[in-house]
Structures are given as C-alpha cells and as structure tokens.
Nucleic acid binder design. Sequence first.
DNA 1: ACGACGAATGTGACCGTGCACACGCAAGGG
DNA 2: CCCTTGCGTGTGCACGGTCACATTCGTCGT
Lengths: 337, 337
Amino acid sequence: MAASGERARVPSIRDVARLAGVSHQTVSRVLNDHPSIRPETRKRVEDAIAVLDYKPNLAARALVTSRTHTIGVLSATIGEFGPTSSIASIEDAARSEGYSVTTVNLPETTPEAIGDAIRQLGREQVSGIVALAPQVRVFNVLRGMAVGVPLVSLQTASGSDGYTLSADQVAGARAVTEHLIELGHTDILHLAGPQDWIEAESRMRGYLDALREADLPTFPPIRGDWTADFGHFAGQELARRRDFTAVFAANDLMAIGLMHGFRDAGIDVPREVSVVGFDDIPVAAHVWPPLTTVHQDFPTLGRRAVEILLAEIRGEQTPKFGPAVPQLRLRSSSASR
Amino acid sequence: MAASGERARVPSIRDVARLAGVSHQTVSRVLNDHPSIRPETRKRVEDAIAVLDYKPNLAARALVTSRTHTIGVLSATIGEFGPTSSIASIEDAARSEGYSVTTVNLPETTPEAIGDAIRQLGREQVSGIVALAPQVRVFNVLRGMAVGVPLVSLQTASGSDGYTLSADQVAGARAVTEHLIELGHTDILHLAGPQDWIEAESRMRGYLDALREADLPTFPPIRGDWTADFGHFAGQELARRRDFTAVFAANDLMAIGLMHGFRDAGIDVPREVSVVGFDDIPVAAHVWPPLTTVHQDFPTLGRRAVEILLAEIRGEQTPKFGPAVPQLRLRSSSASR
DNA sequence: ACGACGAATGTGACCGTGCACACGCAAGGG
DNA sequence: CCCTTGCGTGTGCACGGTCACATTCGTCGT
C-alpha cells in the first residue's frame, strides 16, 4: 500500500491512452467501434482498459454528443396493472440495448403537466420517449407538441402512423361481446372506463360494433373510473333495473367489484347475470366466479415499443408490428342464458 | 423571419451573460443562489434567462461536479403490487425535490446481477439509491458492497441502522394472527412466502410469536411463491388434511388463490375455514368472501425513503421514522370458530 | 489618511469526451 | 517516378458548466 499520495481518481480516456501508448483519440475510436483501427492497436487499448478498469464517463459523452443513451418513460397511470407490466419490460428491453431508463409520472393529465413532463425529459436530453398515454387528451397534447426526439405512444388508439403501438382493443372487446351473444344474451350492458381514455373508447366501440352487427339493442354505457370500488357501487345500483342479463366491464377490477355488488344484491353470477372483464389480471382466474376476460400481453407490448423507438433513434427502418390481438379467456363468470 | 443564417442553438450560460452584460460566472452564481450578488444584477440575469428561455445543461453540470441529481431505484420485483406503488411515490417525491429517477430492474437476484445493477447506477453517477430488495440475499449483498453513494433499503427487516426503512411486518402479521386467535381458532396454518424473502420471514415470525404467546400449537409453514396460482394449488392440497380451522396467507394473492382452492374442494370460507391475507391489494375488499387482511401504506413508505435518502445526500440529519404500523382490515373471510 | 477587509464581479483553467482536420505512409494509376 | 487515394493515427478544440483565484471598489478601524 505504498501510496504516492495520489488522489484516487477514476481513470479517464487519457490514462488509458498513456498506458496503451496511443493518443486519446485512438482510445475513443476503439470505444466507438471505428473501423480504421489496426487489430493489434485495438488489442493494446482493450488491455489497458481492462487493466485500469476504465469506464467511459457518461456525462462527458452526453455533453459533447448531446445524446444520453437514455429513454424516458412518461406514464400517467403508474400503479395500474397493465402499464406497470409494460414499464417493467420496457426497462429490461432498454437496458439490454445499453440504454438507461428514466421515468416520469403524471400526477394529473392537464396539458401543462404534460408539457412540464416533456420539458423535464428534454432537459435530461433523453434520446427518445415512450409514452403510456392512455387518455385522448394526453395523446393529443403529445402529438401536437414539438418534442424534438422520437416518441412512441403505447396502448392508444390504433393510429396509422408509425409512432403508435397498441393492442387491438376493439377486437378484444368485440370478441368478449360476441362470446356473450353466442351464449344467447340479448340485453348486454357496458360498464365503460372514463370518457377521456382511449382504451375506454376502443373497448366501447368493440362492444357497440358487436351488438349492431347482431342487431341487438345497445344501452348507454355506465361511465366508471376503472376501480373495483366503482364496480361495486355500480353493481348495487344496477341490481334495481333488471333489463339486462349480461355486463361487459371495461376492465377486470370493475368486473370484480361489479360481481361483488351483484352478490350484495342477491343476484347470482353467472346464473342470473353474466359478467366479463378485460385485462386478465393475476387474480382474475381465482375470484368467485372465475372471471371470463380478455388477456393482454403487456410485456410484449413494452418490448416492441422499445424496438420501434430504438430503430427510430438510430435512424433505421422501424419495424412494423400488426396490432397485438388480445386473447379471450373463457372462465365461469359467463354462462348461457 | 429574417434569419441571419445562424444555426438555432440552445442558449448557454455565456449567451445569458452577454445579454445581461455580466460575466458567465455571475450567471452561474445566480443559478446556484450565491449570496454575494447585488439584487439589481440578479434581476438583470434573471430577465436574460427568461428572455432566452435558458435551461442549464445537466450533462455539463454533471461532468464538472460529478453529481447528477439523479436517484436510482433498484427493484427486484417490479410488477408486484406493493413495490410498484412505492416506486410511483418515490418517483413523485424525488421529482418534487428536483431529482430525476432512473430505474433498474433485477431479473434475477444473484450477487452478480446485483453487482451489475449497482455498477450500472454507479456509471450513471446517481446521487443515491433506493433499493427495493426484499430478499435476504439481495439485502446482504447490498450491505456488503461498497456502493459509494447513500443507499436506502426499503421494505426489509426492521434493521436498526439508519439505512433501512420498513413497515413493521412482524407487528402486522402478529395482529392478524391474534385476530384469528380471538375468534377462537386454535389450529392456524401459515402459507408463507419464499424462504429467501425478508418479508416472508417477518410475517412468519409474527405468526409464530402470536401462537407461542397464546400457547397454541404451531405448524410447519407451507412455502409458497406469492402467486395466486400457488395459493390455488395449496388450497386443493390442504383440503385433504382437516387439522386446521384457519390459514394466514403471507400475501393477498395467495390468500385469494387459497380461497379458490378451498372452494374447489367444497370447503366453505369462512364457515369451515377462516382465511386472512396481507397487503390489502385493491381487489381484496371485493373478492368473495371479502378478505380480512393487513393494510400497508406503500406510498408513505416510498416518500419516506426519498426523504431519508435526500437528507443523506445533502449531509443533513436523517429523519428517523418509527416503523410504519400496518393496519388490520377486518372483512368477511374470517369468522369465529 | 491609509491600510485591511469583505462584497461583488471577472478571468482563465478544467472536467472527459467526440469531432474536424492534419499528417505520415503504403499502394496504385498515369 | 510522381501524384492521388485511403488507411491508421495524432493534435487541438469545443461542449457548457463550475472552481480557484484575481481584481475592483466601498467601508471601516486606527
């Protein structure tokens, strides 16, 4: 431990250069895979890097290139099941490509809040943004905003531009509704999500499409807020009117709450009323009765979002994914009339 | 739009200085709240900043100060309900203090993976780390690792050092178990979490403590994996032995799966067997029967973790929080013997 | 009246990279 | 044989801040 009093400083590119007997620029070239490097030189540099345990300074690199190798995740809905699963996979996918991930939460969805969030990510000089922006309003604000970096929007309407990626919510909703119709139901209610949410609208559209095609009567949707508590309340209220035999809830939480409400009112699911949900959250198979629902593959969605985003960042051809088709999970909460 | 051919460049500190008629250093002082600035000068600089819409370059600042105003979140369990809620609040709390948040996920909990994650955060020069490291192994690796920046560990054993923050899992588990005892149950099983998890151990300890204190027989715990699917399986298996009248499941998902399994086997909850859980996830109140469980305030936990971490980063006195006491939520899945 | 001192501000270097450009050298075409 | 070309490498500067130190000026103590 005969220290020469030197301060323990992390090695820089010049330290590596000195040890390898080359210029700092040559080291930089090795780091960035420049083609014109003699193999022998490269080897020497790489050895020096290994010896010193050199790690490039990301801040310095970001300063000079104004690129950070960081992608920002903008989420309005942390805490919900779907988005959370997607975020985890976005995280993994980005890391495995050498990108960092920074998250910013939207406590409210006003245009100002969204603008702030985008500007915040801009200040951090993110290379790209994945927005989990399920509300129409948020989506429009994003679209109208000069972001300056590639932006991929996840779980929104199936827009035709390359920036949007989605599961085909309409098809999923249509599938469950058709399932109810096949079971012989003719009076089917819809417990919808909040007005502003794109997914709420898509799922409602799927519901309406299926009913119209079958020439069945449609009912004005009940507007919910995605929570199980609201579903519970709605179930108790709906128990008073008995002009329906099935309900399609726009997500599983509301469906589970709804069944609870029906139970409170003495209505048997599925004998008297069938209930179906959407999302296939982990408990859906285990509640009573096990919930018929639509399964969404959130991790895949997250991974694809990153693929598209990175392709755009790198200026490559962006891969085209057809909308993922959510799958029907038939369980016991739906029964024939 | 008579442009002088100038490239649109983001204004730097020197542009501000020029416009305000001061030196760049004075601008820097204004930005950093240096005391020795004449109010009039400060005003001029601030006006110039506003006019140019100047935003300091974070990369440049990070380069020279080697501090990034970023906190890293290390999570082994993104996707679970509890951690996710905490992460969201960590996010909010950190942002509101001007810190960015970068997340890194641990796909596996080997020491190497943990080391990689820590090093990754180190390369990004985070100012501090919040670790959601619920496994004993992870916790020990972290503790033994020279991280170099402040580290707060969330949701772990109630260690006595300032670096650890937790809800009092033992007390919560003890509370539900005592609840079962008060209801007259004497043969109470425990469906535990995985061996390695700190929370699993704490909850089991609370269970054991309560039983011993009441001089009741203890049973070897059944080891689960936190999932509802496992709970379902366990319920079917347990239905064969009828030497118990109550089960304390270490989390709500397993409890819900368990009730499903009992139902499959024709066992009525709570008439024949009482079931209680832990966490109070949003559906807990709405499953059938509504689940008696222990409520944890994850958002508060996340917020406190950030408070402690920032205090450490700033070298201030770290606030001391007593362990949060989880609260019993009495519902219908538990009944008297 | 003069020197010391602190407040307010300016000057230049430096942090660790990447980029533009220059340079030496070997190969190839006229 | 000379000029061009391209490969491999080096030199200096720029990026946008902060830090250490220098400088100016007004005030106060003696």
